[in-house]
Design a protein around this nucleic acid. Structure first.
Lengths: 240, 240
DNA sequence: CGAAGTTTTGACATCGTTCAAACAACGTGG
DNA sequence: CCACGTTGTTTGAACGATGTCAAAACTTCG
């Protein structure tokens, strides 16, 4: 039997393996019409798919998980956004400033031409902007615990989830490494923070990739950036 | 005689003081037509100006400098973008996720309705997205020196500048505090980094707000995130 | 001159990174 | 079914970059 681990299969979302294994990189046959596409975990949406010439592409995630990221010549990586089912993201025209997009699990996307769907394109840009601005706040002004709390809540909101004993259960399509590159931390710090959350009872997990949010309210309090009652001494970026 | 310091007046850009002092917050009389507007340093573009009802506003900076920022309930601030002459930025509809915009010097803007200029709106959104993505990389994956180098080069590119002895001269409309909130650092670190750049001859300044880039190439090298020849040991966010 | 705000500098603390190693999960090939 | 390699996660110990706190030096301006 073919083994597929929780992260890849998503547990909640079994996929058609044959379709998922279709080689990516093949240009859609009818670029003007919606086109369904399957991507395997780890695969990049290549240049061909990302932007063909001048006309900008739009991707709607039907199922699975995409990561939009940038690389430094150096090798450092920053994941700009994580997109789950329902999200539409724009493939910026390539070049040095063009971002790359990668699937974190078996993912089904709909490929559209931005010129054909200006309204959807505008909406996608708007949402990306709002999310990125929030993320900049996170990257520039939050500490490790706040970052991880925000990350978990974002993922919980984006990915369909079951309740287990009344608590939201979340399948992480991101590895600790992905989380680190998304939240501007290192793998070790992410791991330590998650384990700290587990010890204090805010979350729970047996397998690294399946997390139960046992105290979402506490996570929300941490994530919100509200002043803590217990004397918040922080000064970084503080304004009267 | 009226005294105006270098930061406020911009030295290179004398402004009509009477016009500049016009009280902000007054709604444009013809929202559908381009409308010129003057803002004094420190003034926020209020709700009235930022977004009137459902129709989104667009601002084109004619002269001066705007900062787009977010606040945490906490008081922490993150400046999302700095916009100089020529830049067009969108005023997102208010609400908890709506950003605030503030003038850092006497600033003249043109107020447009996004619905009336969809092309310009799309272009502004696109540029904002590209810049924000770059900034996320900076915030999440760069050290203090790289951040400051990038900040200086960005400002040098955005603001009209003279050459002094062949070197670009830059008027900082941002205080050290603004720089810190933009780059995800503290005032002290910004100050120390700038002084370090001065000591090593990459930049020079007598007044804190007028900076000469004496070795732009070195700044660019620092800012680029290229692996240094002298054994770069960094590992954070690194990928083969 | 004196008050207020900004920048700089120093001493010290700390959070997050670095480095190293053990551990766990998974898949492959014998 | 088991040994083994690979990849991801966890943990510990030490270090260091950057934040924090405090105060002095400047600048601006009344």
């Amino acid at each position: 039997m073919l083994h597929v681990n929780a992260r890849q299969a998503g547990l909640l979302h079994p996929v058609d393996m044959d379709a998922a294994h279709a080689t990516p990189g093949t240009a859609p046959r009818h670029p003007d019409k919606p086109f369904l596409y399957f991507i395997a975990p780890g695969d990049d949406l290549g240049e061909e798919l990302c932007a063909s010439g001048t006309n900008q592409r739009l991707y709607r995630v039907m199922d699975g998980c995409l990561a939009v990221y940038h690389l430094l010549p150096d090798g450092r990586r920053q994941i700009i956004d994580i997109a789950g089912p329902g999200r539409a993201i724009a493939g910026l025209p390539g070049g040095p400033d063009g971002h790359a997009i990668k699937a974190l699990t078996f993912t089904e996307i709909e490929v559209l031409d931005a010129a054909v769907n200006p309204a959807l394109a505008a909406e996608a840009a708007q949402e990306a902007l709002v999310r990125l601005a929030r993320h900049a706040m996170l990257l520039g002004r939050m500490n490790a615990a706040e970052k991880v709390a925000n990350g978990l809540l974002d993922l919980a909101a984006q990915f369909p989830r079951k309740l287990r004993q009344g608590h939201p259960v979340l399948t992480l399509y991101l590895t600790r490494n992905d989380l680190a590159d998304w939240l501007g931390l290192t793998v070790e710090t992410v791991s330590r923070t998650l384990n700290q959350f587990k010890r204090t009872g805010m979350i729970d997990y047996a397998h690294a990739e399946i997390v139960t949010l046992t105290r979402p309210e506490q996570l929300k309090a941490l994530a919100s950036g509200r002043p803590t009652l217990i004397r918040n001494t922080r000064r970084q970026g503080e304004h009267a």
